[in-house]
Each structure stands twice: as C-alpha cells, then as structure tokens.
Nucleic acid binder design. Sequence first.
DNA 1: CGGCGACTTGAGATCTTTCAAGCTGCGTGG
DNA 2: CCACGCAGCTTGAAAGATCTCAAGTCGCCG
Lengths: 241, 241
Amino acid sequence: MEYLSAVELFVRRLTSRSKLERPSISALLDLDGRLVPVQRGEDLILPGHPVSYSTLVVRGVLGRFDQMLDGKRQITALHIPGDMADLHSLPIPTPSWGIQSLVPSTTLQIPHERLRRVLDSHPDVAIAFWRDTVVDASILAKWTAYIGRADATTRIAHLFCELGVRMAFQGMAAKDDFPLAFTQAQIADAVGLTTVHVNRTMAVLRAACGLSIEKGRVMVRDWNVMASYANFDDSYLLMSR
Amino acid sequence: MEYLSAVELFVRRLTSRSKLERPSISALLDLDGRLVPVQRGEDLILPGHPVSYSTLVVRGVLGRFDQMLDGKRQITALHIPGDMADLHSLPIPTPSWGIQSLVPSTTLQIPHERLRRVLDSHPDVAIAFWRDTVVDASILAKWTAYIGRADATTRIAHLFCELGVRMAFQGMAAKDDFPLAFTQAQIADAVGLTTVHVNRTMAVLRAACGLSIEKGRVMVRDWNVMASYANFDDSYLLMSR
DNA sequence: CGGCGACTTGAGATCTTTCAAGCTGCGTGG
DNA sequence: CCACGCAGCTTGAAAGATCTCAAGTCGCCG
C-alpha cells in the first residue's frame, strides 16, 4: 500500500495550500495508475517527447533537467515523495525538459485522462493544481537567483536547507537528518558547478557546519550555521496558506 | 485606447495556446483596471508584500527579480506588452519575488477580485491561466539551465534570441530589430554577470553577429549567427498548440 | 581479489569579477 | 548657448573563483 500513501501525501499538501471540497478530495484520493520502479540514473521523460501521464513520486527523488548540446546537464527542480513531478505535462503534454531518477525510486504514472476527468467535474482542483505549479515556479525562481548571484558555498548550503525543510514538511524526516543518496556529480548538476568544485565546497561546509552525506543520509550538525551560509528564508516555499 | 489593445494581446496569446469558449473570451476582453504609468527603475511589487491585483504590461518591459542580502539582483523573468506579469499572484497573493520596471512603462492593474469572478464562471479560463503559468515556468527553467551551464557569450546571445522571438510573436516587431532600451547593467542582472563582463561580451557579439542596442532598439545583423552562438531552439517558448 | 563508481587532491588554465579611471551623450540650469 | 553633471559605456590590470586535466584513494560488489 506504499503508493496509496504517496497519493495521500500529495493530497495533503494540496489541501494545506488550497481549500478543496470534500468530493474533490475523494476524487483525488481515488487517483490511481501504474506503479513503476526506476533505477538510479534512469531518464523517465525526455525533452520534446509527448507524455500521456503525470508522474507522482512514491519513493526516491526525481530531477527535472535541461541539457546543453555538449551533454552538460542542469537540474532545474527536485521532486520528493508526494510531489507530482510533472503536473505541467497536463496542460502542456510535450515538455521542454526531461525527468531523471537520481536515486532508486518508485513512481506512479497517473494517466492524464484520469486527471482531466477529475478537473472537469471539480473546478476547485484546477485552481489547486495551478497553485501547486506556482509554488514550483517560486522554487525555480529562487534557484535561478542563487545560481546567478551566489557563490558555490552559498548555493550548496541553500540547496540542503531547502531539501531539509521540504523533507520535514512532507513528514519524511528532520530537516537536519534525512535520507538522500546524492552523488557529488548530482549536486553539481543541481547548483551549476563541476564535481571537483562541489567536492571542495562540501569539504568547506563539512568543516563549517558539519554537513555530510553518509550511507545515503544527509546530516547537518549545526543547521543554523548552514542556514546563515545560505541566507536561507523559507518563505518562498509557501508552506502555509 | 492603448490599454484595450494590451488586453486584446493577452487574450490573443491565451487563445493561441488554449481553446476558450466564446463567453469566456468576452469576459476576458471585458477586463479592466487602473492604468498606471511607471518610470524606468521603479519597483512595482516588493517581495513579501501582498498584492490585490495582477499587472498586465501595456507598454514597456517589466522584470521579475530576486535579491541577495548584499543588494545584488537577479532578474528571473521579463515581461513585454500583452504579458500578465504576475498571474501567479492570483493563486498566491504574497509573492516571494519583486517586479521592477526596466524601461518607462505602462501597466494595467487588474483587481484579483475581477479576475476571480471570471474564473468562477468560466472554468476553461482557469486552465488557460494555468497553462500560461506553465509556459512561464518553461522559460524560467531554460534561463536556469543557461545561467548554470552556459558561458557569457552563449547566455547573452540566448537572451536576445528569446526576446526577439517573443517580440515577434506578440507582433511588436521583427526578431532581429525590436524596441528595447536595456542598459548593460540590466542585461547583467538578467544573465547573472557583472556589467563589466557584459560590456566585453557585447563587444564580442557585436563583432560576431552585429548585435547592437542603439537609441532603445535592439538590432541584429546576422540573426542565425547569434542563434548558433546561443544554440537557440524556440520550442520551450511553446508558441503553438 | 579485481573492478568500478564515487570521492579526493594537486596544479595550472580559463573565465569572471573587482577596482579604477576615462569617455560619451544628453538634459538642465545659468 | 555653454558648462556642468550624471548615467551609461568602455578599457586596463590584477585578483579571485571556478574549471580542466590528471592521478590517486576508498569502499563496495561480484
């Protein structure tokens, strides 16, 4: 029943930001699809290829990415369990980005047709989905700002602040100790740096605030120190109505 | 009647991507608000301050931005006439970003209340608005990718490719010759570089593809050369259904 | 035990920033 | 009509951040 709880997580987050009618909520909770296990590093969706389902993260972490001609990747969003990784594909079925699995994951592919049926009879769900897309854009804007204007230490600290807070918000773990088996190459793709430089910067943060990734867990000794490196302010995550 | 045509532009763009019922279209065309002239450099909306209207660009260019503690700005989106700069504020009335006017502009402040009334009676409009937000996010993702993974020349070339194509799509001008009185400092804020480096890079592009800004007009002699510097592919702008 | 992926380290190259100064065009006040 | 001042553009030189290339280490799995 693992995937049922992912749908529940998704609905719980929607209702934390949007008032939904009771029938809308049950229609959402009835959503179902194909449960798909995916390996680490697998590309689930490729840019320019139309899709007919949306991808709910049940387990693991997915990354939205864009790719340069020389193959360099930039991750533009991370999705943890309870996130619909490409709600976008419902209004725009041919994405301009790709989605890859960053760790061993499980997804639930929910057919667009089913989602559209819910939207057609429950207009408040459309607003809730729209609102979720706006939160996603708010996070993306923050990433853009940090990649454009912050140095390596600040960017990486900010990434882990954000991930911790989001994990905690989903009730998965504590913000200073959560499961996440990222490689340094994946961190590099997320913050727009090279692996070598990420490696050096992680060493700095390890010394400064006790940030470490061990056995697939992120741990932070002095979370507040990391947050001050990041100038972290969680309001862009819009965690309350 | 200048501002009426901005509403028309907005509606025309919505209908180019979304099928809308005839009554929905007339409800949208009936939208009205307060026409506000703004000076270059003025901040229209500040991060964290709630707003009760959405801002339609009638004339000029607005920039969405985020700001670091030291005051450095990163522009995360540009809005040209016919764009609703903060449709986002309708589902999320307290923005985490600001909006500034980059050139002398005119905006139409449309009360959220009026927009909500349209949404309530025309569910297809909600989907169209949502779709517009997704296009906005698609552009933002492309910016993130270029800021994270492309060098200065490529980033700036890409910016002007995008702006040209968007201007042409709105029917404002040709993609290789359009009105836009940006300063190099504003370009720097958009691509995440310093003014000095933008200056040097503009000189390179001027020599390579005849890109220039004179008397508030952007002109490009060899658009295809610029596009190849940018590796430009317009599909992320989703200009057709 | 071998091999592979991920992490670490060093050194030099390259890109971008910083600081500083001078230039240019334009609007304003005298 | 001219002088001034300011904003924006340009240029030089040095500092700094990040990247590239290259090699070596570590731990885990077959």
